[in-house]
Amino acid sequence: MAKILALTNQKGGVGKTTSCVNLAASLAATKRRVLLVDLDPQGNATMGCGVDKHELPLSVYDVLVGHAPVRDAIVPSEAAGIEVLPSNGDLTAAEVELINSADSEGALSRALEDLRGDYDFILVDCPPSLNMLTVNALVAADGVIIPMQCEYYALEGLAALMDTISGISSTRNPKLHIEGLLRTMYDPRNSLTVEVSRQLIAHFGNKVYRTVIPRNVRLAEAPSHGLPVIKYDKHSRGAIAYLALAGELIRRQDAGKVRQQPEETAVR
């Protein structure tokens, strides 16, 4: 059964889409079956996977408003080794149309439920705002990965996001939890970066991934070629970091499964 993870942060420019594309490709490199859901009308994750957002017969918009079954809209990404539920500018209209539906917050959850048996991971790239699309992602997700830079304003935005997650967990999706906080564009030479990182670890403990994503030119260049960084330059620091993150995510999931087993089974 697929684990559904929403990558979200209301602050833009924190490496959210970069992390979604590259984590998806890195998980696929470990032989996991991965679906990336692009829930941002900008369609950057779609393009970053080598899928042309301007040439889509169907997109996530059609799925959310009930115009097409979800499987009809999914396309393969040979560049990333995954499948993609793509997005483009049409998605901007979905929020307005969803408001008039009976369950405006549960459209994505209903669409993804039938796909859980087809994948190991479903990653959802959210828009950089707390709107109806992001709420749909949080209602559908099992966990949330929060990419963030280690800077002062990132901490302010994190508080608002935590409130949103808590509210949805208590009213619509009791299984929703913080899967992890991912430090992006990390520069250990910057004293503020080190201090904010220390504060995150002090407050969130092991929810903060040990893996950090460095500032890396190859990471910035890869999307313009429609490739994840492991296909663009697998020896780059960015590629190595996202492969390490995929490994950490898998190890955490495996450890969680062991803890959920009866004690006598876990000992064997």
Rank of each mutant, 00 (worst) to 15 (best):
L39I: 15
L155I: 00
N44S: 10
N173V: 00
R33L: 07
T18M: 11
R210K: 10
E78H: 12
I74A: 11
L200W: 07
N88E: 00
R198T: 11
K16G: 00
M47A: 13
E83N: 06
V258C: 01
Y209F: 15
I213D: 00
E78K: 15
I74E: 07
E55T: 06
R172C: 05
A266M: 02
S19T: 01
L85I: 10
D62F: 09
T265N: 05
G226K: 12
L130T: 14
Q199R: 15
K16I: 09
S19K: 14
L138Q: 09
L112P: 02
T134H: 01
Y209K: 04
G157C: 09
N44H: 07
N100V: 02
Q199W: 03
K231P: 00
L56P: 06
L7I: 09
V75D: 00
I213T: 08
H225M: 08
E151M: 02
F121G: 00
L35N: 05
L58E: 08
Q42T: 04
V75Y: 02
A202S: 11
V96Q: 11
G143C: 06
A80Y: 04
G256D: 14
I213K: 13
E179I: 01
L200E: 11
K53I: 03
A140L: 08
D90F: 03
L176N: 07
A244R: 14
L243K: 10
V75S: 01
A107K: 15
R33Q: 14
A68T: 14
G226R: 10
R218F: 10
R116C: 10
T18H: 06
R198Q: 14
H235T: 13
E95W: 07
D114N: 04
V51Y: 03
E83I: 05
A160V: 00
D72H: 13
A29C: 04
R71Q: 15
S166A: 12
N173Y: 05
I201A: 10
L200H: 09
G81N: 04
A239T: 06
G89H: 08
N88F: 03
E156I: 08
C49F: 05
T265D: 07
R116I: 13
G15E: 03
L35G: 03
V124H: 02
T164C: 08
D114Q: 12
V70M: 05
S87P: 03
P57E: 07
I213M: 03
L192P: 01
V63K: 03
L249R: 01
